[in-house]
Design a protein around this nucleic acid. Sequence first.
DNA 1: CGAGCGATTGATTTCTTTCAATATCGGTGG
DNA 2: CCACCGATATTGAAAGAAATCAATCGCTCG
Lengths: 251, 251
Amino acid sequence: MSTNGHHSIFAPAFKIQMNCHDCVLSRLCLPGCLQQNEVEQLEKIVKRNRPLHKNEHLFRAGDAMQQVYALRSGALKTYLLDQDGNEQITGFILPGELVGLDAFGNHCFPSYAVALETSLVCTIPLADLEELAGYIPSLRKQLLTTLSRELHEEQQHYSHNRESAEQRLAIFLLNLSQRYSRRNLSATSFILSMSRGEIGNYLGLTTETISRLFSRFRQLGLLEIKGRELHLMQPSALTRLGKNAAQQPAI
Amino acid sequence: MSTNGHHSIFAPAFKIQMNCHDCVLSRLCLPGCLQQNEVEQLEKIVKRNRPLHKNEHLFRAGDAMQQVYALRSGALKTYLLDQDGNEQITGFILPGELVGLDAFGNHCFPSYAVALETSLVCTIPLADLEELAGYIPSLRKQLLTTLSRELHEEQQHYSHNRESAEQRLAIFLLNLSQRYSRRNLSATSFILSMSRGEIGNYLGLTTETISRLFSRFRQLGLLEIKGRELHLMQPSALTRLGKNAAQQPAI
DNA sequence: CGAGCGATTGATTTCTTTCAATATCGGTGG
DNA sequence: CCACCGATATTGAAAGAAATCAATCGCTCG
């Protein structure tokens, strides 16, 4: 009772952060389809970390896998390192997305996660999560759903492999646009949190190719870009471009 | 009691098939790390299907997702169809591997699965599996582990995107070799259950490129191949080739 | 203000695709 | 049993897309 009756001087401010229920991202995040009382249980095990600064790692391959993470604000990239030390970026993480799911069942993370800008993450201890999943069927389902959706997205990403550089960049930009839009941010104006090189790495292209494509897209009036500030002028034309490289007339 | 005392005339033969516990593939499959009594519970919900003939579909995108599958014998391919009707092969399934995991949390399968040769599959009803996962923590863990491993493998597959055609085929063949080996089959001699075109599709290359590469590998003495019968002569050289395209001498 | 990284743009090279022509295999029916 | 068919595989020549090499520009941060 006494602990409920008064708080440490830091508690109120801290408390505001600690709430999944009030988080605008919850519908995109692990709470997803959970009932309110279930979210409350989840909240009890979720921790918040200090902010992660740009270029700071959330985890590295080989780190003990004792928790998964959800991004609260900012942006991350995840990547693998091959035997020659080459970085292969496997994804860009936006707020509301989970990170570290590729490590389930391993003792260590197989991949790296690093902040592209100052970011806040929520930490979910694995032991607690597993226990809670025993009680809450919809949490189990949510975990499997999230993981299988990631798998499907990864497959789709791979399947763009055979398409032209132009198509791949168009698809990438539209994907970002859609994800920002789901977060109630502008679908047509946003800041790229990653460099040209990182986009290229992710898409299996080079910095130079990305740069040339941005120039071409600008010349075609599809977009305006200055540094990392992007404005999509003709999303529909970009969509068309993403679908069929040469606009092959039907039949 | 009377039902235990005697069987239908088909029961004995059927019973032999129905046993995960005796299945040589169980350590690779869903039973994975389960305890014996847990495997017995799993067995109760697993069904076996009639054989799937070559080119017969196990499921198609859009089919209701009411079960997942485990391959018992034969080989499958899974693929996506893009908006233009182009097939993108997302994986080749060998005995002991699960199929359909990319559909969790969806009502329908997003992908297709078709037999590359006559195959037997085990069927696991989703409702039963979800219920059982409530009782058996290690089954929950096993599901998440399997799914996250698939995700990681998909990421690795994608990360070979930037490598040369030569490297990609080398890596592919070594991957098959390793998977056959884990099934106590020869790591150096096996039959490719897929066509050159299917290999190419999977790797983001063309039939012709695959064919040329096989010829080159043969000329280099790395392998012998006649039709779909493959024999790896120098797996270690193939490994080296998979690692660095031009054998750049270290420093 | 200078250093250095990221971005842009051009010229050239390289690898893979595309187009095209055979060749081979597996199955079917005469 | 053999001939024929379609599908699959092989091989060559040409075209094309992106990488590589290289130079310059511009911005940000000490």
